[in-house]
Nucleic acid binder design. Structure first.
Lengths: 251, 251
DNA sequence: TGAATAGTGTCTTTTAGACAATATGAA
DNA sequence: TTCATATTGTCTAAAAGACACTATTCA
């Protein structure tokens, strides 16, 4: 097809962010409250328009920084930085009633942040357990109640992001992105338990995780911040792919 | 942000297709020759603009059908239909010198087609081994020669699609999407060998693949089209996730 | 008969998973 | 001391990988 600007329909392109962390043994997502229609007053994922001369990943990192103060790398975070990767793109013609918007969703995995409500406005930004917005694991039990639907198609985007995180910590070292720079084997185990929603055997987990080459590097220090016997401190090793992988029970 | 159409920059949105098949023991991709600048005369991935009222997956399926006559489902193909899934979105501001174009790439896995050059124009559409365009596996040997670069950023898109296919046939039953409706264990093994570029032990492969629940269903028939002793014919079972997974040697 | 492919069986090594037992610090 | 968590060790079952051997067709 020849180059003719009138020959293609115009779109708005946005980035939406699924920002996940583990707080008090629960997988939580960052949500913002909408101040105007449509979906006024409803919770939504943070996001915004991609600028005219901005790359998609840069736009996602900018929005993340504006919303949380976090910095993120697109390929594997390190010190106090979060992991950022593209998730998927959502472009149903009806997904935004105002106009045709294609949203490139990104997934961010971040350690638990010191401030309960990061950013400026405590009314309109919060961490919430993902079960607040999406049905838990395999249909869910009676006690969870109905999820509060997010604005637009953000419920589906969040569900896709959570599923990506759940499957990706199986075969990559990404679970360490939820941990502070130095962490114990037990803290890492609690990350897996929170993300997968299962209990893991601490003894087999310890043997497996310390035996996987490149996953963990001991720092020499130890801590008793979890109580009990002092635990060795580790930081993330250089490996990105785990071999053998961690296996989610009962698949 | 308030609704103000002038407040967001306009983008063109396209779909590009990584269409893969296995032909003569080689993983091949569909390529089209560009008839006009930029990159005139260079090979590129098939694709085109998303229409004003069209979903992304529908646009990909439409382009695929226009190019090859194939029909595709977005979630698991069956009879003579191909597998289609979203791959990733590419939006570097400089990726198209004419204007700002965001491309939502899709991955298609199709069985070997009867016509060598599907579609109408044999000059401008062809199947080519993926090594024609991208460096093979781990850096590649001496004998492969330099790959012929595709137009735009299509080399990277193709590489991402090939890697997705290589990893996805490990833990899903997607390898059957490369096979005709009825196929033998040996034919399925040759698919794995072509996609991964390795040789697999036929005996262990047979035991493993027939022992994985839901992967293969015997049709009762048999064939000698590969020579040798007649082989049982199978069709794809209902399982989409393989447990245990097929493991790529030497990772 | 020989070449080619299909299919079964057997053995060894590795890994997963269950769980006993010990180690170490805090309340 | 008791409790909580960390860490090591042992056992069993499952799976991966190597490879001998048999089966069936066609040229």
């Amino acid at each position: 097809m020849p180059y003719d600007p009138s020959a293609y329909p115009p779109f708005a392109v946005t980035v939406d962010l699924v920002v996940l962390t583990v707080r008090r043994h629960a997988l939580c997502a960052l949500a913002v409250r909408r101040g105007e229609p449509p979906y006024q007053g409803r919770w939504a994922l943070p996001g915004g328009f991609v600028k005219a001369d901005e790359d998609l990943g840069s736009a996602a990192a900018r929005e993340l920084n504006e919303e949380t103060g976090l910095r993120a790398h697109e390929s594997g975070g390190s010190t106090t930085e979060a992991h950022l990767e593209q998730l998927a793109t959502y472009g149903d013609p009806q997904r935004d009633p105002r106009m045709r918007v294609v949203s490139v969703a990104h997934l961010v995995l971040a350690p638990d942040l010191p401030s309960p409500t990061p950013g400026g406005d405590a009314h309109s930004v919060r961490w919430a357990p993902v079960d607040t917005f999406i049905a838990p694991q395999g249909g869910g039990g009676r006690d969870a109640g109905q999820p509060a639907p997010l604005a637009f198609d953000h419920g589906r985007i969040l569900a896709d992001g959570v599923e990506r995180a759940r499957s990706k910590i199986e075969y990559s070292s990404l679970a360490t992105a939820f941990c502070p720079p130095e962490f114990t084997v037990g803290e890492l185990r609690r990350v897996y338990e929170a993300v997968w929603g299962v209990a893991l055997d601490p003894r087999n987990f310890h043997r497996k995780v310390t035996g996987t080459p490149g996953f963990l590097v001991p720092t020499g220090g130890s801590t008793t911040r979890q109580g009990g016997r002092p635990a060795q401190l580790f930081r993330a090793g250089g490996a990105t792919l785990l071999n053998p992988p961690m296996l989610r029970p009962e698949v």
